[in-house]
Write a protein that binds this DNA or RNA. Structure first.
Length: 463
RNA sequence: GUGGGUGUAGUUCAGUUGGUUAGAACGCUGGAUUGUGGUUCCAGAGGUCGUCGGUUCGAAUCCGAUCUCCCACCCCA
């Protein structure tokens, strides 16, 4: 029974000092989201399994955390009956899982959002702008920078086709990272341009294979991507046509010109070019301090994107994307509400944390919380400290009283370990002389002063 | 899902060709100091050596299985 407690693989506890820093990130993100008029939304940790299945591809389905039903599911599911007629265990498992689980933990925030929109379609005024900051779960095998439980910070606007939304999101991304002091590259592309490329070589139906392969360009390089494309059934001439385009180092205008020539017979591609040009034109009219890049190899894995795609990388720390998203034309369609287009991005709080940590870019004062500690000199003595502590709180100091009348040494250690800058002593000696002793921990300096000077002295020492 | 590594005190790790009582540092508790933290000194607590089995007179050490965590791939934030 003396077994060591532990938490499940890929999950984490966040101690106080980490939480203070995480809250700093969430606070900035939330404030920026709200400044653009996005409204808060939360959805349950668990969704019906049907809501989630089939939305993330075959690979995604496997990574969904399922929740076991309560009750005697073995008996109800007719275990023996099933077992007798099916000998293939994989098939048996599949059949059984349909009966023993009907709920699952959410895999991302976009699908629950789509579900919410469809469910409340009669009460929502479109366009609907919402943000959502909640954990999501994936039954993946964890490794560095990848967890089974992690937070996503999503902003989406649904029910508007305007490219102004994309523009605004870029502006919002820029604002978040500006406030966090992270220098970023915002990469842009358009799914329709990728579809145009697939169309150009006559392989529209293999768009997904194409995008999965070229998305790895900056990770594994040109040769490996070529190899992968061949493996996925593309011909040498396909690759010969594609590679020069997606690796093009031309300027924005250069790339547009190149694509226009290539896409004279592919309407989807032309549409993509037009959207890209409009977006760039709109962005030109704003002050975006981050560098923008038109990256033709940017594809993003999720295959529900249909228009613009966005991905953000840190300029200083190699950690993959710290924010990403795009436009999806028909996400609510699978829930029976077609024709509602949405666009959104998601910030990866955990990776942003790592970037700030490695850059030492967290603000200093996020560390200590309590500013003033009243020592406890005994059950009777401490009563006289109570109103003083309350006065200090009203004066704006985070104040606590040590709860137990233990040795002063121990109480001082508590102040030291919690980095509390000021300790106040109001024991019998002080009280009889109508004075109070106050100590600044950083310098060790200590002063005995008259009561009404307490506030001023603390102010002076904390600043 | 595929492949590689790891496991000894709260934490980070030593532990010789298998040998008697498994160590260190840091941390923790108490004391030197009954109203004073950080530095110092003294003392103390803390271990089913991941688990189960095997080889052996004898296993932290060798073998097998199993679990765990870490790393890479697939995929993703």
């Amino acid at each position: 029974m003396a077994q060591k407690p532990s938490i499940p693989k890929g999950t984490r506890d966040f101690g106080p000092s980490v939480m203070i820093r995480r809250n700093y990130i969430f606070r900035i993100i939330r404030e920026v989201f709200e400044s653009f008029g996005y409204q808060p939304l939360e959805t349950p940790a668990m969704e019906s399994l049907d809501t989630l299945l089939g939305k993330y591809g075959e690979e995604g389905d496997r990574l969904i955390f399922k929740i076991l039903n309560s009750g005697d599911f073995a008996g109800k599911s007719g275990w023996t009956e099933l077992g007798n007629e099916i000998t293939d265990t994989m098939q048996l498992s599949k059949k059984l899982s349909g009966r023993i689980t009907g709920k699952a933990l959410r895999y991302d925030l976009t699908v629950p959002f789509a579900r919410y929109v469809v469910q409340n379609r009669n009460n929502l005024t479109l366009p609907f702008k919402r943000y959502q900051i909640q954990p999501v779960w994936r039954a993946d095998r964890p490794q560095r920078g990848r967890y089974r439980e992690f937070y996503q910070c999503d902003v989406d606007v649904i029910g508007s086709n305007s490219l102004l939304n994309e523009t605004e999101l870029v502006q919002l991304i820029n604002q978040v990272f500006k406030q966090l002091n992270i220098r970023v590259i915002i990469k842009l592309n358009n799914r329709k341009i990728l579809a145009g490329l697939a169309g150009m070589i006559g392989r529209q139906e293999q768009l997904t294979e194409l995008t999965v392969a070229i998305d790895k360009l900056d990770k594994i390089g040109m040769d490996e991507v070529t190899k992968e494309l061949i493996d996925r059934g593309f011909s040498n001439s396909d690759v010969a046509q594609l590679m020069p385009v997606i690796t093009s180092r031309e300027s924005f205008q250069g790339k547009i010109k190149l694509l226009k020539e290539l896409f004279h017979n592919t309407p989807v591609g032309q549409e993509g070019i037009q959207e890209m040009e409009t977006l760039m034109k709109l962005l030109d009219s704003m002050e975006i301090s981050s560098s923008l890049e038109f990256d033709l190899s940017l594809a993003r894995g999720l295959n529900y994107y249909t228009g613009a795609i966005i991905e953000v990388q840190s300029r200083d720390i190699e950690i993959g994307s710290i924010c990403g998203g795009g436009r999806y034309d028909n996400l609510t369609g699978i829930f029976g509400l077609p024709g509602v287009s949405g666009v959104g991005v998601s910030f990866g709080a955990d990776r942003i944390y790592d970037v700030l940590n490695q850059l030492h870019a967290f603000p200093e004062d996020t560390q200590s919380l309590t500013q003033v500690l009243f020592l406890n000199f005994g059950e009777d003595e401490v009563i006289y400290s109570l109103p003083l502590a309350e006065q200090m709180r009203r004066a704006g100091f985070k104040t606590e009283i040590y709860p137990d009348p233990v040795k002063i040494k121990k109480q001082m250690q508590y102040a030291h370990h919690n980095q509390i800058p000021v300790v106040v002593m109001y024991g019998e000696e002080e009280r009889l002389q109508k004075q109070i002793t106050i100590k600044q921990m950083s310098s060790g300096e200590q002063a005995t002063i008259v009561l009404h000077n307490l506030k001023d002295q603390i102010t002076q020492w904390i600043e």
